[in-house]
Computed example of a mutant assay.
Amino acid sequence: GGSGGSGGMGEQPIFTTRAHVFQIDPSTKKNWVPASKQAVTVSYFYDVTRNSYRIISVDGAKVIINSTITPNMTFTKTSQKFGQWADSRANTVFGLGFSSELQLTKFAEKFQEVREAARLARD
């Protein structure tokens, strides 16, 4: 919660969902390590000043995802309720576990949308 103060119009969430967040184990690059203890809010943000899109997730005071979406990123559904994307800047792979297939589908659709917008913003 919290009101967040005056803040200005820097970033606005354009899509919000809830999911369990995972990150790939840096040593094995195979196993998933839970980044959140429970389902947390995962939001797409549009950064007006940078004209860029980001996926941000905060667990309490800890930022667990801050991923700038680039046109060459892909979101992959690996099961009915799980999807992942690689972030080369953060040098990791993020995984999201959803409670329903519909939530995953919506997130994946938004990813495509935002990626396309990021491509157009770059040109």
Rank of each mutant, 00 (worst) to 15 (best):
G1P: 14
G1V: 14
G4L: 07
G5Y: 04
G5V: 07
S6G: 09
S6N: 09
S6R: 09
G8N: 10
G10W: 03
G10K: 12
Q12Y: 07
Q12E: 14
P13N: 09
I14C: 09
F15W: 07
T16F: 00
T17E: 01
R18E: 11
A19G: 07
A19I: 06
H20I: 14
H20A: 12
V21G: 00
F22Q: 10
Q23V: 15
Q23T: 15
I24T: 05
I24C: 03
D25Q: 13
P26T: 03
S27T: 14
K29Q: 15
N31S: 13
W32L: 13
W32S: 10
P34N: 00
P34V: 01
A35V: 04
A35N: 03
A35S: 08
S36M: 01
K37L: 05
K37S: 07
A39V: 14
T41A: 08
S43C: 15
S43I: 06
Y44A: 05
F45D: 01
F45W: 08
Y46S: 06
D47C: 04
D47Y: 05
V48P: 04
T49L: 12
T49F: 10
T49H: 09
R50H: 07
N51V: 10
N51C: 12
N51P: 03
Y53G: 08
Y53S: 08
Y53T: 04
R54D: 10
R54G: 12
I55K: 00
S57P: 05
S57I: 01
D59F: 06
A61V: 12
A61K: 14
I64A: 00
I64C: 02
N66V: 01
N66G: 04
S67Q: 07
S67M: 04
T70S: 11
P71S: 01
P71F: 03
N72T: 12
M73K: 06
T74A: 13
F75I: 08
F75G: 08
K77D: 06
K77P: 08
K77I: 03
T78H: 00
S79A: 08
S79Q: 03
K81C: 11
K81G: 03
F82C: 11
F82T: 14
Q84L: 14
W85K: 05
A86S: 11
D87N: 08
S88D: 11
R89F: 08
A90S: 14
A90H: 05
A90Q: 14
A90C: 07
N91P: 02
N91K: 14
T92P: 03
V93Q: 06
L96Y: 04
G97H: 05
G97P: 04
S99F: 01
S100I: 05
S100Y: 01
E101G: 13
L104I: 03
L104C: 13
T105I: 09
T105K: 15
F107D: 00
A108P: 10
A108G: 15
E109D: 12
F111Y: 05
F111D: 02
Q112T: 14
R115W: 03
R115L: 07
E116V: 06
E116N: 11
A117C: 12
A117M: 15
A118S: 13
L120M: 11
L120R: 11
R122F: 09
D123N: 15
D123K: 15
